[in-house]
Design a protein around this nucleic acid. Structure first.
Length: 478
DNA sequence: CTAGGGTTAG
């Protein structure tokens, strides 16, 4: 009678199972709810286990609660809102629970919430640990927030975690994603205990910021340091080769893969197709593409954009139709490829039709790149008024790139009227952009409007212009 | 007692 209830329960179970061997320690008394939570496969199951935990008061145990939280927060069949509720009703959650929720929020549609949660955690006086920062930095990457990245960096220093490999890796990645390559590189250089991952992070940082040469130089140094590249590193380097036109190096890496028996799966296959196609080795790219047992949208886009940059509009359109037949849904990248191909080939009607189908058929909201293709396309076809209208109709603010495309078209058509408006818009964005004065001035000169050339010359600060070598006001200006 | 890093298309 003086035995606690759970022991009684345990001994009963002992007898029932007929386990008479004394050499085994007695099994734990209560059913292992936390272990069940780890094996759970659906929210329905999880809610049952949760209920059991509440009934048996196990829920007040942070370890048990954290098993529930992990499933709802991180599993594909979990439920982040349930995780948030669970977290909110937990009294004094431990650091594991904070980290788990930060991790989940970092990969959610609104990654900023990870940073908010971290702030809340600090306000409650909870100290982060070495696991906190990699998760938090992932959130910074996903929200492309340089500001939060910098703030997290100061906290890393404050808590003395600047020598943790995963933390440094996270920082290097977050700075690279925010295009702060110099900060990323400084951290990378100052960190001596590098492994393959951090090398890959830095190389990828350069490759994705279109600094292909730096990526390739770093890859060389990595090899010299005795690191054996694996799939992820090679994929990144191939991407750099594709972007910088290094066909030879790309081929050498392909040979290296074959030599070391590195499998050409989906990702590396896609990277190879892109590398060959972008470098003009279309037949090799096609052969690879056709031989791949598994292809995803990225593979199709690689082939499509490769063909497009080789000016092969007919083939791009044929491939696009094939993609539609395969019941694959194109995305925004696909349309950049297709529209830029139309643009190069001057296929105005086809381009316009495809541009309209983006939203109407596929429900994809055009981005500024797509509008850029259309402005270029209309501009080349002499439809300057339509191009200008299109820019006005955009949901987003026009940037210098798209206005520059329109200005170039105006110059080709000799339309000073629209050009004047465009120049005004560009100067509103970049007051010190001297190039647009030059373009406009040249246009006036071509039209023989010398008074306007002089007027413009007075408006602009000639002194500043002189500091930009290689530019004169008018061609053959004396 | 639980956990963390690198990859493809623009």
């Amino acid at each position: 009678m003086f035995l606690p209830k759970r022991l009684t329960f345990s001994s009963k179970r002992y007898l029932c199972t007929g386990c008479a061997s004394l050499s085994y320690p007695p099994k734990p008394a209560l059913p292992q709810l936390s272990l069940l939570a780890d094996k759970c496969t659906s929210m329905t199951q999880l809610k049952q286990i949760h209920a059991q935990m509440v009934v048996t008061s196990r829920i007040s145990d942070h370890f048990a609660a954290s098993r529930l939280l992990s499933f709802c927060a991180l599993s594909d069949s979990g439920d982040i809102n349930y995780a948030i509720k669970l977290f909110e009703i937990t009294k004094d959650p431990n650091i594991f629970m904070w980290n788990t929720l930060i991790r989940a929020l970092a990969s959610s549609p609104n990654p900023n919430r990870a940073v908010f949660l971290y702030t809340k955690m600090r306000r409650q006086g909870v100290c982060p640990n070495n696991h906190t920062f990699p998760f938090l930095l992932k959130g910074c990457c996903n929200s492309c927030s340089l500001e939060s990245c910098k703030q997290v960096h100061t906290h890393v220093l404050k808590f003395g975690l600047e020598l943790d490999l995963h933390v440094v890796n996270g920082l290097v990645r977050a700075y690279s994603v925010s295009s702060h390559l110099s900060s990323a590189r400084r951290l990378f250089d100052e960190f001596s205990e590098r492994n393959l991952s951090i090398w890959t992070t830095m190389i990828t940082g350069y490759a994705q910021n279109f600094c292909a040469i730096e990526a390739l130089v770093l890859f060389d140094r990595m090899l010299a340091d005795g690191f054996e590249p694996k799939g992820p590193t090679i994929a990144s380097v191939l991407s750099a080769c594709a972007r910088s036109g290094c066909l030879e190096l790309g081929e050498r890496i392909h040979a290296f893969m074959l030599e070391r028996g590195i499998e050409t799966g989906l990702v590396l296959g896609t990277a190879l197709v892109h590398m060959y196609a972008k470098n003009g080795a279309i037949s090799t790219a096609k052969k690879l593409f056709d031989s791949m047992p598994e292809r995803n949208l990225a593979t199709w886009n690689a082939m499509l954009c490769g063909l497009a940059s080789n000016g092969n509009a007919e083939e791009v359109l044929a491939l696009f139709r094939k993609l539609e037949k395969e019941k694959l849904l194109p995305n925004d990248v696909t349309f950049v490829g297709v529209l830029s191909a139309c643009c190069r080939a001057g296929l105005i009607d086809v381009g316009q039709k495809i541009f309209n189908s983006m939203k109407e058929v596929y429900g994809i909201e055009p981005k500024i790149e797509h509008y850029g293709c259309m402005v270029d396309l209309l501009g080349r076809g002499g439809k300057l008024v339509e191009a200008e209208e299109l820019i006005k109709r955009m949901a987003m603010k026009a940037d210098v790139v798209i206005l520059g495309a329109l200005l170039a078209a105006c110059k080709n058509q000799g339309n000073t009227e629209i050009a004047e408006r465009v120049v005004k818009d560009i100067l509103a964005l970049e007051p010190h952009n001297h190039m647009v004065y030059v373009v406009l001035s040249n246009m006036y000169a071509e039209a023989g409007r010398w008074q306007d050339v002089w007027r413009l010359r007075k408006v602009m600060k000639v002194g500043n212009l002189k500091k930009t070598p290689g530019w004169s006001l008018v061609d053959g200006d004396t």
